[in-house]
């Protein structure tokens, strides 16, 4: 269970999160919606542990552990996974090398045996095929020259390989055409399980047609302004974010 209590976060001296409360039980998928500037991406980065995001008050615990006290790599080991809105390009690091380094780092830290090369390759190929990722893509430098869709599929591949228990998806649908949204959503849905909680951050309701959430929370000015069932997303599609201090969606 993810428990966020009274979270206040400053970025460059400006308060972006302003007393945010959120509870996400194991096995559930919650959507975070809201107008631009409401603090959605800040929440994602704070959960993953990015520097320069100063927590001035509040707490975040994951299964009772204090997430805020951990460095980013320890959060990953504890099960937190952030699918980036803008995945980084790293020339000089082959995608496969990166995947293997990450998987083995996490396995090692979790006290599991590192995967042998053949076992790892089998593991990756199987997960990659499900996401329609060509083997050739894995030989290329990480995300370099990848299309928007390829980058997002690569994020979901990493999510599948690292087997996290808390998945945070930051605007995973942005910049994707409808076919790409379907592939990515299918990849995410395949990972839904009673042991896994997901936070799906999105500006638009479209993604939620494919990843149907248990709960929807609307952020406004750095806190949860309203919560409801999946129907809340549909309602926002009609009315826009005007009542939450944003422009029409």
């Amino acid at each position: 269970m993810l428990e966020i209590k009274n979270l206040h976060v400053n970025v460059d001296g400006r308060e972006i999160l302003n007393g945010l409360d959120l509870t996400l039980p194991q096995g559930e998928v919650h959507a975070i919606m809201g107008p631009n500037g409401s603090g959605k991406s800040t929440l994602a980065y704070v959960l993953a542990g990015k520097e320069d995001y100063e927590v001035t008050a509040g707490s975040v615990t994951w299964n009772g552990e204090d997430l805020l006290a951990m460095v980013p790599s320890d959060r990953a080991v504890a099960g937190v996974f952030l699918a980036f809105q803008y995945p980084m390009e790293i020339p000089g690091v082959a995608t496969m090398t990166f995947l293997r380094t990450a998987v083995n780092a996490v396995r090692k830290a979790r006290g599991e045996a590192e995967l042998s090369t053949p076992d790892f390759l089998r593991f990756v190929r199987e997960k990659a095929a499900a996401l329609k990722i060509e083997p050739d893509m894995l030989k290329r430098p990480l995300n370099v020259g990848f299309s928007g869709g390829e980058k997002k599929r690569n994020e979901i591949l990493q999510m599948a390989l690292l087997e996290p228990s808390l998945c945070v998806l930051d605007e995973t649908d942005s910049g994707l055409d409808i076919d790409a949204v379907r592939i990515v959503a299918a990849g995410v849905n395949a990972l839904r399980s009673p042991e896994r909680a997901m936070l799906v951050i999105t500006h638009y309701q479209r993604l939620l047609n494919y990843i149907v959430p248990d709960r929807v929370h609307v952020l406004s000015e750095g806190r949860v302004a309203r919560s409801g069932g999946p129907e809340l997303a549909l309602e926002l599609e009609e009315t826009g974010y005007a009542e939450f201090g944003g422009e029409a969606a």
């Binding site: 790599s73 790293i90 000089g92 830290a109």
Partner: peptide
């Protein structure tokens, strides 16, 4: 870039080394 690697569970020192190797690798 460092944060991206760390967010995937790669400890900071190892992530730095990987980025240095990537730089030389080009």
């Amino acid at each position: 870039l460092l944060f991206y690697l760390e967010a995937r569970g790669i400890p900071e020192e190892e992530a730095r080394a990987l980025l240095i190797q990537a730089f030389v690798g080009e």
